[in-house]
Design a protein around this nucleic acid. Structure first.
Length: 419
RNA sequence: CGGGGAGUGGCGCAGUCUGGUAGCGCACGCGGUUUGGGACCGCGGGGUCGCAGGUUCAAAUCCUGUCUCCCCGACCA
């Protein structure tokens, strides 16, 4: 991508109506546009980050044999009435609207009920099980108070997955597999080190559910960590958990976190409420065991910004950065332009994602933009570098630059690609 | 939903107390000088001050209502 072809531009000043670091930086850098409180548009750069996060999640969900699909945003009232969750007193974040003929419909805040309803048509026998389905979807939740930039919105992108099993053992097994898959996701997002599988309040069926809590000062959750035993417990269930898990309250460390994912074991509750059954090996009707698993995609982007950005701007891990390279061309001399164009063309052809700052701007402006946008590697082509037949490279996370030849540059790019 | 703060060119702000029909920086356009950490000079375009109503000869400024945004709290299967 050439800078001259990107419609967004950076801003020196942060919007006055945002306090959250993630929103300030993402807006300044042109990654997102705020439509209203709790609703952000993803601009080209932000969209690339979202897509990269999705791709990592997609690969890991596919690896545990889940099928990707996309459910509808419009949802039927009748389906949710079967489980009592259409009632605003039960679920207070519904966006509801109606069709032209006055039929009431809801905007999806979750897809548990609709997906169970859908499976009536496809699941009849134990031979059809297990099944795992997931989607990336914009969830609509009428939060009373949106806040923290993209981390708590009224519409946000979520990966939600649902699994269906013939037996409790099979569900438990898949549930554990999913925990491992989630760990791989957070590792690949660069926040695995600070993300803990956390005991949280359960549903009707299990004592606890599991949340994935990522340590983050900008978070709104509080968990208690037992670093020695690698156990984490949400504040809301800490008393129960201490009893249940046989740990000492004094050994727990209190930390602020963001809930970046959660998984629930529904047992057979949903299937019974909604009348979804299958025929088992003995020809008898049996209830399905269901699990539900979520990852906040847009929230993950916000958390990564909060944790990694510095005072000069965004800092992206190589595998989710919109572009790997910020190629800054300094000067307008023919040989410099030609060299920069050539490097851009060749790296791009080789599959490297390069953002080419081909604007006629001064060096300081380009460096400041490079820092703000946060791509992993800055490469400079200028009269100076051309004289020596080299390229100047600098990692976003470091302050010193180095002069390297083309081979060294390419090996550094290879390293970034593998990180 | 309770409490607090704020809405003035695209962005960040001053002006509001002490009414006299709007100013600065950035961004933008033109000309010139510049070119390794957000350049400089000159010229120029752009806002009726969130919205509605009221007081007044006169309202960004005073009064009433309302909408929106931010923060704290409550809430968050």
């Amino acid at each position: 991508m050439r800078a001259s072809n990107l419609f967004t531009k950076t801003s020196k000043t942060a919007p006055a109506d945002e306090v959250a670091k993630n929103a300030q930086l993402l807006i300044r850098a042109g990654y997102v546009y705020k439509e209203m409180a709790g609703a952000y548009a993803y601009l080209p750069l932000g969209l690339r980050v979202i897509e990269k996060i999705k791709e990592i999640v997609r690969q890991e969900m596919n690896a545990i044999h889940s099928n990707e699909l996309v459910m509808t945003s419009l949802q039927r009232k009748e389906i949710w009435e079967k489980t009592g969750r259409w009632d605003d007193k039960v679920v207070d974040i519904w966006f509801k609207t109606q069709l032209a003929d006055k039929t009431e419909v809801g905007l999806g805040w979750s897809h548990e009920e609709p997906i169970v309803e859908m499976l009536h048509q496809y699941i009849h026998s134990y031979k059809d099980l297990p099944v795992s389905l997931y989607q990336f979807q914009t969830k609509m939740r009428n939060e009373k108070r949106a806040k923290s930039g993209v981390m708590r919105g009224r519409e946000f992108i979520m990966k939600d997955m649902y699994s269906f099993h013939a037996t409790k053992e099979d569900l438990d097994h898949y549930y554990d597999q999913t925990i491992e898959a989630y760990k791989r996701v957070y590792d690949r997002l660069g926040i695995g080190q600070d993300t803990y599988v956390t005991f949280a309040s359960g549903g009707a069926f299990t004592k606890f559910s599991h949340e994935f809590q990522t340590i983050c000062d900008a978070g709104e959750d509080v968990i208690y960590l037992h670093r020695g035993q690698n156990i984490a417990v949400n504040e809301e269930v800490v008393d129960d958990a201490v009893k249940e898990l046989g740990i000492k309250r004094e050994e727990l460390e209190k930390v602020k976190t963001v809930e970046t994912g959660n998984i629930f074991n529904f047992g057979t509750q949903k299937t019974d409420e909604m009348g979804l059954y299958f025929t088992d090996q003995d020809g008898k009707q049996a209830s399905l065991w269901i699990g539900s698993y979520g990852i906040g995609i847009s929230r993950a982007m916000g958390v990564i910004v909060e944790k990694m950005a510095d005072d000069r701007g965004l800092v992206w891990p190589a595998n989710i950065a919109p572009y790997t390279v910020y190629l800054a061309r300094l000067g307008v001399e023919d040989n410099v332009v030609q060299a920069a164009d050539k490097l851009y063309d060749e790296l791009t052809a080789a599959g490297v994602e390069v953002y080419y700052d081909d604007r006629d701007e001064r060096p300081g402006t380009k460096f400041a933009d490079a820092d703000l946008l946060g791509f992993p590697l800055r490469v400079v082509v200028s009269a100076k570098t051309e004289e020596q037949g080299k390229f100047e490279v600098k990692l976003r996370t470091e302050s010193e630059s180095a002069l390297v030849d083309r081979a060294e540059l390419e090996s550094q790019l290879k390293q970034l690609a593998n990180s």
